Amino acid sequence: MENLLLLHGALGAAATLEPLKQALADNYSVYTINFAGHGGNALPAQEDYSIELFAKNVVDFMQAQQLEQVHIFGYSMGGYVGLFLAQQYPGRVKSVFTLATKFAWSEEAAAKEVKMLNPDKIKEKVPQFAAMLAQRHAPQPWEQVMHKTAAMMQQLGTQPALTPDALAQLQLPIQVAVGDQDTMVTLEETIAAYRNLPNGRLLVLPATKHPLETIPVSRLSQEINLFLAHIPASIPA
């Protein structure tokens, strides 16, 4: 079976993709990973969070699992990592399906995202979310995960890892998907990214918001199956 790697979003973990993994297991060899500092993985001691670091996490995982090539589904930040990986290691990635991935990074956009990443305010106003993050990332302190994520977003605001020119160089099959009610990722930025892709497809999910858990697993797995069904079984490295 074809190899399919699922990449989680910012503040997420492999466990958030477990229902999707199970739904796709009959058709693909499905893998999930935790990025550095996520899902209980050790926080990088001497290194900040970055798209480059997370891409290296994927490459190391593929080498450990002896995976020569993979299809990638990436949710939110995971989609950004998947596209960056395809740019840096084109022979290792056969296709990328992104969902709710932010492409239009600027200082203003980063500031908007970072404003929501305040551990103290989250503990005060949404303690249930804080408790969930604590459980998800234990034994690592979720506050540090959030601080490092905020710093990475600020870096993306000044130096995006993916530019329109970089997207235009990606020749592999790519589908970018966004919900029409997503308040974090605009339809406009997703369309702009799609138009830069030489072999791109666009999917707009109706009545769909940003959080992954609000999207029916059956719907998402169906869309992934439809996308991958159109890709040749063998793509030259």
Rank of each mutant, 00 (worst) to 15 (best):
M1K: 14
E2Y: 05
H8F: 09
H8S: 03
A10P: 06
A10D: 01
A14H: 11
P19W: 06
D26R: 11
P44D: 03
E47S: 04
E47G: 01
Y49W: 09
I51H: 03
K56L: 14
V58L: 06
V59I: 15
F61M: 00
M62S: 09
Q65Y: 09
Q65N: 11
L67G: 05
V70Q: 13
V70D: 04
H71L: 07
I72W: 07
S76F: 05
G79R: 15
G79Y: 13
F97W: 08
T98M: 06
A100N: 09
K102W: 04
E108M: 13
E113R: 13
K115Q: 14
K121S: 14
K123V: 10
P127E: 05
Q128Y: 01
F129L: 15
A130N: 05
A131V: 08
Q140L: 00
P141Y: 00
V145Q: 02
M146W: 01
H147R: 14
K148E: 02
A161L: 02
L162G: 07
L162V: 11
P164T: 11
P164M: 08
A166S: 15
Q171L: 13
L172G: 09
A177C: 13
V178H: 11
T183F: 07
V185G: 02
T186Y: 04
E189S: 08
E189Q: 03
A193M: 05
L197G: 14
P206H: 03
A207V: 04
T208Q: 08
L212E: 15
L212Q: 13
T214F: 10
L220E: 04
S221I: 03
L226H: 12
L226T: 05
F227V: 08
L228Y: 08
A229D: 15
H230W: 03
I231N: 14
P232D: 10
